[in-house]
């Protein structure tokens, strides 16, 4: 990849991520904040792609931006926190100062470790999955154990998802039937 284009992409996604993160912590409406968080997670996924980790990027989108955000929104809706202002008391001045301090400490730590030599035990070992992934691409090392060693778990997951889907339909249809019943009565 061309270095100029690479740095352009890096700064583009990095800036969007930071801007979205700022928007995430400053929005008053929980739903809007959650959607800004989705934006942050997408930008991080893009950065993972640039770091030669396409699999982690895909998982980031699927798991964080997909599943976990749905759960966030589910809780927000369940507790009926959709109106702005209801969560304001959860973010007092002290909490803001502490969070700011923690952020500064983290930033300083990252800056200071930019030039540090990586710890030996954290370096990639030649037999590690990540090294294999670098040579073969990420799909094979993930897929192979998934369809050999963890085949049963994989298949059971499919049944689990089937049951969840059937249950969702059953509960959803239950509502419709109840409404019909009310209409008929």
């Amino acid at each position: 990849m061309y270095p100029l284009f690479y740095s352009f992409c890096f700064y583009l996604f990095g800036l969007i991520a930071i801007a979205s993160a700022l928007a995430f912590v400053t929005r008053r409406s929980p739903v809007a904040a959650a959607l800004w968080l989705v934006n942050v997670l997408f930008c991080l996924a893009a950065l993972y792609v640039m770091l030669d980790a396409p699999f982690i990027a895909a998982v980031q989108v699927l798991v964080y931006a997909g599943a976990i955000m749905v759960v966030f929104l589910f809780v927000v809706m369940l507790l009926n926190l959709g109106l702005p202002g209801e969560l304001a008391d959860a973010r007092g001045l002290l909490a803001k100062i502490l969070a700011g301090l923690a952020g500064i400490v983290l930033l300083a730590k990252i800056m200071s470790s930019r030039t540090a030599v990586p710890i030996e035990s954290l370096m990639l070992r030649p037999d590690s999955l990540a090294t294999v992934a670098r040579i073969q691409g990420a799909v094979a090392p993930v897929a192979q154990p998934l369809f050999t060693e963890y085949l049963i778990a994989f298949e059971v997951t499919s049944i689990l998802l089937l049951v969840a889907a059937v249950g969702a339909v059953l509960i959803g249809r239950r509502r419709a039937a109840a409404v019909e019943g009310v209409g008929a009565g």
Partner: peptide
């Protein structure tokens, strides 16, 4: 698998 079915 056991629990999800029983939740429903």
């Amino acid at each position: 698998l056991m629990s999800v079915a029983v939740y429903i």
